[in-house]
Design a protein around this nucleic acid. Structure first.
Length: 886
RNA sequence: GCCCGGGUGGUGAAAUUGGUAGACGCAGGGGACUCAAAAUCCCCCACCGAAAGGUGUGCCGGUUCGAUUCCGGCCCCGGGCACCA
């Protein structure tokens, strides 16, 4: 045994053993309880960053501990290999996306192996392989057949110079990232998946089928799906288009959750793309200009919600459905054609946005609801705006004097009687647009024929293989420019020359079901086969909180679609979910001349504090140029602020990197990266090693006999000191067990540190009891530590002879708390007087409340502090404290 | 703007979620060993105060015998907002 801890040697030797034994390969074994523990698959961006290390170490700790507890544990790994960054790399370096991606995968896989993760690599999946994405295409065709996939127009960011669609990330301050051109909104056709058909079930399952999910994630999903019930109704009108036909058949539909305020309507607003707006603009140049202006600006909800609300009257009028009054139609930049009917009623008195709009354009405000009999007060809008519970309608003809609920019912009824509306449930959730005008993704299996339109590729022709020789240049649609792919196909219906669809699928499609493919990754006949029945649903899913909504919702939807196609038997894919907190680092950037942004590695720059000590800019060390400090944010390749764990692993070893990452914060907490304290984790492992060396010497002195095997403590007498040691070790073990169960691994590490403190502080009297207690304690320590730092623990377990007695640490039994070791005669209770700590009392462990109360009142601390005052009330919390109120 | 989290010593955090605030580390201070250094080991370490004692979990207020924990209102930071993944 080495006298000092040599991490490189230990890790190399142990990993060689594991590799030689292929110890992480698992098969479906119905004789054992299965456990499927999986991390969200990484995007192969180049190198691992600390977020990955954190994610996979959490996963590894869980997998290793449960294996010791007797579970058949699956921990697979794969690559979310399609996506935009590969195309960006191609633009920058001229390397084909496929090559860049596969190089990155090879490097990152090596890094994962160096971390010593218990991954079953035989199940590795890369989503850019035809054998994988074939099934994206196959399921897409099934969805088309079922009507779940359909085609409609979508609004995208259009770069007029590069003639290309931009991702939201590529639009910076309303301009294209490469060209600097002002980005326009443009409508193009694309495929959608009807996730809204599943809205009710997706919402319902959140509260009924996901008890193992964090509340915060469930809340976010519920709010995202956003069920609301209201009334959809029409404003009748006689506005006709150029051909003389009534627009919308003479009815302009709107939706509202506040039908009780319908008598307060003073205007209506339509989206710039609404037919009434288009019609009005045809004879009104000012309005046409306003509508054109609305086309600039971003497409994201955040931008739309924060932009200035603007409008312009159309000069056209519709009729109020209940009063027949004329209501003017405005065009509003805040009304979206994609939501509902692209039109809204305007009730300035009872809607904050309408209020602001009415104030700005001097529109009438008509109050129709009172809250607690209070009159409307412009200055105190927020005090009562929207308080539906306490509201009563006024100024509303026959609807006056009603509660919110009754008024909504009555209005709905009245509208229904006139054939102009009805109650309706709506969702915030929108259908999932899956078409992308990009190269590096799954080709959408469609052929366009002049005669037969969009024709699905026959199943036998799948996969539609993505050509590997395409290097995107930033303009146009790359596959559209690739003649070999785009042209030269025939229509499956008529056999005449046709064109292949050149859009690819959103990469969220790839990540919506890969975890089912892991169950049988090599199957060429089926998307998922019997393996999924054994392993699914996944028992524990682990990934960043940034995926709380989109990825997790899409995966849930996709699973339900697969269930409805009889491919799997489950309703929900993930039984338990752990959302790991983000690993953050500082962000420094500079805008380029064309609008593009360059990011700088935090150690390349020095902060420049302003007069108040606040940092907003920094200086580049290399050339002294000024860059801006953008605060702290997620580690990512695109922000150039990801910390590569490689240096850490080389200097201290994988065990230290893993241990530190686990120790420094609880898994769910956000972590601002700082490795100043890594040294402490390394020091701890050295202490563990050194203790092993000492113990090994004692064992050798005792003739090599080690060992506390199973039942090895029977008949051994423990002295007072040994008993105290065992009390400490088993108390901590109990806590460690609990922390493992709730996956709070930072305190698991604390617990193991407490164990080594106790063992090092123990003064052995050389008795058999003392020696046995130490060996038992160290054996418990090694097993508690092993899931976090498997290499060193595995090695020491072996060297010290524990393996010979209790088996290989991979499968050694998890230590059990000995209730006998926890028995105490006396316990200390804190003594409070009027809630303030004034001392403590010692009472027998089994003391009754009355005895405790008597002891407390008789104690010196009480007598001295109470100063003769009589106790009015005594609160006894067993095992904790006594509070005397005087 | 909307939805969801978070804020505890110089610092990362703990407190089994209404019951001893700061466990376990890092940094720092002091000491031992050493010719010296490194490594290792031991002690101290929330703030104010000489002490008694008082004050402290982002800020303001409330409920309670007792609040980091529950309630109301604010401030700051992070995540998401549908084409980054």
């Amino acid at each position: 045994m080495q006298d000092t801890y040599q991490h490189t040697e230990v890790e190399r030797a142990v990993q060689a053993l594991w590799t030689a034994g292929d110890v992480y390969r698992v098969t479906e074994d119905t004789s054992k309880k299965k456990f499927y523990a999986c991390s969200m698959l990484p995007y192969p961006s180049g190198k691992l960053h600390m977020g990955h290390v954190r994610n996979y170490t959490i996963n590894d700790m869980l997998a290793r501990q449960l294996r010791m507890k007797g579970y058949n544990v699956l921990m697979p790994m794969g690559w979310d290999a399609f996506g935009l960054p590969a195309e960006n790399a191609a633009l920058k370096n001229g390397v084909p996306p496929a090559q860049w991606t596969f190089d990155n995968i090879a490097y990152m896989k090596k890094q994962m192996q160096a971390m010593g993760l218990a991954i079953d690599w035989s199940r590795e999946v890369a989503t850019c392989e035809p054998s994988y994405y074939k099934w994206n295409q196959w399921l897409f065709l099934k969805m088309l057949e079922k009507g779940i996939a359909y085609r409609k127009t979508q609004v995208v960011n259009w770069d007029p110079v590069d003639m290309t669609v931009l991702a939201n990330e590529q639009v910076i301050d309303g301009k294209g990232w490469r060209t600097g051109a002002v980005v326009e909104k443009r409508e193009i056709p694309g495929y959608y998946l009807k996730i809204t058909d599943y809205a009710e079930e997706l919402l319902d399952s959140v509260s009924h089928q996901l008890p193992g999910w964090p509340e915060r994630v469930k809340l976010m999903q519920e709010n995202w799906i956003g069920k609301s019930t209201g009334v959809r109704f029409a404003f009748p009108h006689d506005i006709s288009d150029a051909s003389g036909a009534l627009i919308g058949g003479g009815k302009m539909y709107v939706f509202t959750t506040r039908a009780d305020t319908i008598m307060g309507v003073t205007f209506c607003a339509v989206a710039p793309e609404h037919p009434i707006a288009t019609h009005a603009a045809s004879t009104n140049p000012a309005l046409a200009a306003f509508i054109a202006e609305c086309k600039s600006g971003g497409t994201t909800e955040a931008e739309l919600a924060t932009q200035e609300k603007k409008g312009m009257p159309t000069g056209l009028f519709v009729r109020h459905p209940l009063t027949d009054d004329e209501v003017e139609v405005w065009v509003g930049n805040y009304v979206l054609m994609g939501y509902g009917d692209g039109a809204v009623m305007g009730v300035p008195a009872h809607d904050e946005r309408d209020f602001a709009f009415a104030k700005k354009y001097d529109l009438p405000i008509r109050q129709v609801v009172l809250v607690d009999g209070e009159h409307y007060d412009y200055q105190h809008w927020h005090d009562w705006y929207g308080d539906k519970q306490r509201s009563v309608t006024v100024n509303s003809d026959s609807f006056s004097g009603m509660s919110h609920k009754d008024a909504v019912e009555a209005v709905a009824h009245a509208l229904q009687a006139k054939g102009l509306g009805d109650k309706k449930t709506t969702w915030r959730l929108r259908d999932w647009g899956v078409s992308r005008q990009r190269y590096w993704g799954t080709p959408i299996p469609i052929i366009h024929c002049d005669e037969h339109g969009a024709v699905p590729v026959p199943e036998k022709d799948l996969p539609v293989v993505l050509p590997q020789d395409c290097i995107p240049d930033g303009s146009g649609n790359p596959l559209h420019k690739h003649e070999g792919f785009h042209a030269g196909v025939v229509c499956p219906v008529c056999g005449k020359a046709a064109r292949r669809e050149t859009d690819t699928m959103d990469t969220f499609v790839d990540s919506s079901w890969y975890f089912m493919r892991y169950c049988d990754p090599k199957n060429t006949d089926k998307m998922v086969a019997e393996g999924a029945d054994y392993w699914m649903p996944m028992d524990q899913y682990i990934g960043g909180i940034e995926h709380a909504i989109l990825h997790l919702l899409y995966a849930r939807f996709w699973t339900k679609v697969m269930r409805d196609l009889d491919l799997v038997k489950i309703d929900e894919p993930f039984t338990k979910l752990l959302t790991q907190g983000m690993v953050l680092n500082h962000i420094y950037s500079r805008k380029g001349e064309t609008g593009g942004v360059e990011y700088f590695w935090p150690s390349e720059v020095e902060d420049i504090p302003d007069a108040n000590g606040k940092v907003t800019t920094a200086r580049r060390k290399s050339d002294g140029s000024i860059v801006s400090y953008d605060g702290i944010g997620t580690m990512s390749k695109s922000k150039n602020n990801g910390v590569d764990p490689q240096d850490l692993i080389e200097k201290y070893g994988a065990d230290t990197a893993r241990l530190y990452t686990m120790f420094t914060a609880p898994p769910e907490a956000t972590l601002e990266w700082n490795d100043a304290a890594v040294e402490g984790s390394y020091r701890f492992l050295k202490r563990v090693w050194n203790f092993g060396v000492k113990l090994n010497a004692i064992n050798s002195g005792a003739g090599g006999a080690n060992a506390v095997g199973a039942g090895g403590l029977k008949g051994i007498e423990f002295g007072k000191e040994a008993k105290a040691l065992r009390l400490e070790i088993h108390t901590v073990l109990k806590q460690v067990d609990y922390d493992y169960q709730r996956m709070q691994y930072n305190t698991v590490v604390s617990g193991v540190m407490k164990m080594i403190n106790a063992l090092e502080g123990f003064k052995s009297d050389g008795s058999a009891g003392a020696q046995a207690a130490v060996r038992e304690g160290f054996g418990i320590l090694l097993r508690c530590l092993y899931p976090a730092t498997p290499h060193i623990a595995y090695r020491l377990w072996d060297i010290l002879g524990y393996a010979a007695a209790q088996g290989d640490l991979l499968n050694a039994p998890w230590p059990e708390v000995d209730p006998g070791a926890l028995v105490q005669d006396e316990v200390e209770l804190m003594l409070q007087i009027n809630g303030k700590l004034r001392g403590s009392i010692l009472v027998p462990a089994a003391a009754s409340k009355e005895e405790i109360e008597r002891t407390a009142l008789a104690s010196d601390a009480f007598v001295k502090q109470a100063d003769g005052a009589a106790a009015k009330k005594v609160v006894v919390v067993p095992g904790r404290l006594v509070n005397v109120v005087v």
